[in-house]
């Protein structure tokens, strides 16, 4: 169960990393970014049909998300069972906040992803909603401060989730030894900060006006 969690987390992680890097292309201008979005849909052509690879990725992602969420729910239920009576005095957090907020953080991310898909992939929630013109859509989004705010909250949640997620994953998969513990902790923090910064750079760049 823990292993399924970690593996599905790892898939999501890989995607997210690629996605963040892809997003940065926005700094290279509209055509570069749109071309990237287009390229996403044409990888492997003509071997695989149009959007084939993208769909494979999407299927992979969906499977991972479903597995990941299912496992999160199972683990949470098991935890509930393992502590049927709650403490009267709510325990203060002794470990780390990132660790304690995995479950709520995950839910926030899930909600965000739904919104995000409606926003930029399907387009219904987007101020412009122009199909095939992601650059326009993205820039349209972040002209509005509240959308930037939504993204910020979500991305920060992702950051926390990743900080603990990466660290936890290496541990679950047994890639940590007492000696490498602190190193891993730093790697996880560094990675999470980079990801957060990378993601955030786009909306802020748009809002502030560097891009768009």
């Amino acid at each position: 169960m823990k292993i399924a969690m970690a593996l599905s987390g790892a898939v999501l992680l890989a995607y997210l990393t690629a996605h963040m890097l892809g997003n940065l292309k926005i700094f290279f201008g509209e055509s570069s970014f749109d071309h990237y979005a287009h390229w996403l849909r044409t990888i492997g052509e003509p071997l695989v049909p149009h959007e084939g690879t993208l769909w494979i990725i999407r299927v992979g992602l969906t499977v991972s998300v479903v597995v990941h969420m299912a496992m999160a729910i199972l683990l949470t239920r098991r935890a509930r069972r393992a502590r049927p009576v709650k403490y009267v005095h709510r325990p203060p957090v002794q470990g780390s906040y990132a660790a304690r907020t995995m479950r709520w953080g995950g839910v926030i991310i899930a909600l965000f992803v739904v919104y995000h898909l409606l926003d930029l992939t399907v387009g219904v929630a987007n101020p412009t909603g122009a199909a095939g013109k992601p650059y326009t859509n993205v820039t349209a989004d972040f002209e509005h401060w509240y959308i930037t705010a939504i993204y910020t909250v979500a991305v920060v949640a992702v950051g926390f989730h990743l900080r603990h997620g990466v660290w936890s994953m290496t541990r679950t998969l047994g890639r940590q030894r007492p000696g490498t513990e602190r190193l891993m902790g730093r790697v996880a923090t560094g990675y999470a900060v980079l990801m957060t910064a990378g993601f955030l750079s786009v909306p802020f760049a748009v809002t502030v006006g560097i891009v768009g």
Binding site: P91, A99, R175, R177, E181
Partner: peptide, 27 residues
């Protein structure tokens, strides 16, 4: 219950058993 590497355990452990033992055990 199942461990999700929350780390609360090591914080209260009177003998300061390090979390690293869990990583080793998982491996």
């Amino acid at each position: 219950g199942g461990c999700t590497n929350t780390g609360e355990c090591t914080a209260v452990c009177p003998k300061g058993i390090p979390l690293g033992v869990i990583g080793r055990f998982n491996a």
